[in-house]
């Protein structure tokens, strides 16, 4: 099982290494979102600083929507998914392999976004451990959600426009909890940062469970 997951994950990362879609398309798009927000708030430093935690998650969420779409685009053409399944890979292995690869790519997106926030919005981190823990839980949750809904819409004609509609409401709790945790880690609020991070972890565990249950029905006849 682990070998199959690793195989799929490596396949997706190899595709990314060759095509560099995440690096030269998704990351710049996400950074653009930060710039556009600066336009929206008239480059007001105090407003941008206060909203930086939320902006991070909004930007990463949109990155995850694009990443999930990309992740299943490479399977849709030429009946790739059928080929993988005929090759004897279990649906769960396909889903988790892809989720893992997407999580790695989303982690890269998150790092660039955070760097962008530090440079563009001049935020200062007061609690690194909280920041990193929340970021890891949140991006992993986005990756799993993204893969579930990517698998759900793979090969459908209007998947591009449908995916955000499906994914964003589901990701709302991650967005809320991640924003609260980041506000604390960036020193803009004195909320209970670790409680919100615990909520992120609960969400993540829930999606791991949902993924195990849904992989079969989703990928058997996608």
């Amino acid at each position: 099982m682990w070998r199959e997951i690793w195989l799929i994950c490596r396949k997706d990362l190899t595709v990314e290494r060759r095509a560099r879609v995440t690096l030269i398309q998704i990351v710049p798009t996400v950074l653009l979102i930060l710039v556009v927000f600066a336009f929206a708030f008239d480059a007001n430093p105090s407003l941008l600083g206060a909203g930086a935690g939320g902006l991070f998650w909004v930007a990463v969420l949109f990155g995850a929507v694009l990443g999930a779409k990309r992740s299943f685009d490479i399977e849709a053409e030429g009946g790739n998914l059928d080929a993988l399944r005929l090759g004897g890979l279990s649906p769960a292995a396909i889903l988790w392999g892809k989720a893992m690869a997407l999580a790695v790519q989303m982690a890269a997106v998150a790092v660039f976004t955070a760097a962008g926030l530090v440079v563009l919005f001049s935020v200062a981190v007061t609690d690194w451990l909280l920041l990193v823990t929340a970021a890891v839980c949140g991006t992993a949750a986005f990756a799993i959600c993204g893969c579930l809904y990517g698998a759900m819409t793979v090969g459908l004609r209007s998947a591009d426009t449908l995916l955000p509609l499906l994914l964003i409401p589901v990701a709302a709790p991650v967005l809320l909890a991640g924003t609260r945790a980041f506000d604390v880690a960036l020193g803009t609020s004195a909320d209970q940062g670790w409680s919100w991070t615990a909520l992120l972890a609960v969400v993540l565990i829930t999606y791991v469970a949902v993924g195990w249950a849904a992989a079969g029905p989703l990928l058997e006849d996608a």
Binding site: T153, R157, S158, L162
Partner: peptide, 29 residues
């Protein structure tokens, strides 16, 4: 979205059940 009926039914069913699992999380958060 047009698709083969069995696949569409299963896909929609999975989505509906994920929505139900997600609802308490949304509500709580």
């Amino acid at each position: 979205l047009p698709a083969e009926s069995r696949a569409r039914a299963r896909r929609s069913a999975v989505m509906a059940l994920i929505a139900v699992v997600n609802l308490p999380i949304v509500h709580y958060s």
